[in-house]
Amino acid sequence: MSFWDKMQNMDRRWVYLMVAVAVIIPFFATPDLPISITPEAQMLYDAVEAVPDSSTVFVVFDYYPSTIAECEPMAISALRHFYRKDCKVITLSNIPLGGPSMAERVTREIALEYDKVYGEDFVNLGYKANYVAVMSGMGTSIESIFPADNSGTPLSELPMMDSVVNYDQVAFIFEIADNATADYWVSIVNAQYGIPIGCGTTAVSAPKYYAFVGAGQFVGLLGGMKGAAEYELLIGHSGSAVLGMGAQSLVHLLIIFLVIVGNLGFFLGRRGKSGEIS
């Protein structure tokens, strides 16, 4: 068995070990790398900047805990950006596993940094089942879909909600999603009510949403942890996404190296020589 054949049959756990080492090293020897801003992230930042101060906005927590590493830095940056502009923030979630809990925790944590008061500066509507009905129904009346907030307080008892009836009073929607709910914010809310939507999404979903940015249905896009890092830099508040870029770089380089070695092994090894390549 040649060297390349041995490489082809390497125990997968060696690959796992290499990935683990590549992801750990940068946390102890942080490389200082310039992070470029993509036009899509810049467009989103500019669109949020263009929202009039003190407007009412939505920050939607449409992600599961599984993608917290990619999506939470986006949510934190979006909240910081809106709180800085004194916007009234309404949060909600269409995710039944963890969405409302994460919205509650993150929104309250960031609110403390800006002395924001619950019920006056921000409200967490929580969750309601069947997201197409929720998105569509809020076009007529938010209170009919969410009679109470996430803690069960009737919306009529929250001062901030006095002046908010439906989408007519909402200036911007910042959708942070790891699933297809973003498609329905586009097809139902943006298309029918014309509200500008900015999207932060996982890297897995990002390529699809370039089509929405190109059509003007999203005013900007953050793709994955890199997108989150870009937004952190744009608002001037580095966080976990910027910190993660070192590890992200090293693991990408490792995977590219593995792909090259795998292909070399395939072509130079037994299977390549026996003419298995078509």
Binding site: V19, V23, S66, T67, I68, A69, E70, T202, A203, V204, G224, M225, K226, S240, G244, A247, Q248, V251, H252, I255
Partner: peptide, 9 residues
């Protein structure tokens, strides 16, 4: 990129 980010988290 996405899967690596989750591990980084």
């Amino acid at each position: 990129m996405g899967r690596v980010s989750l591990l980084i988290g």
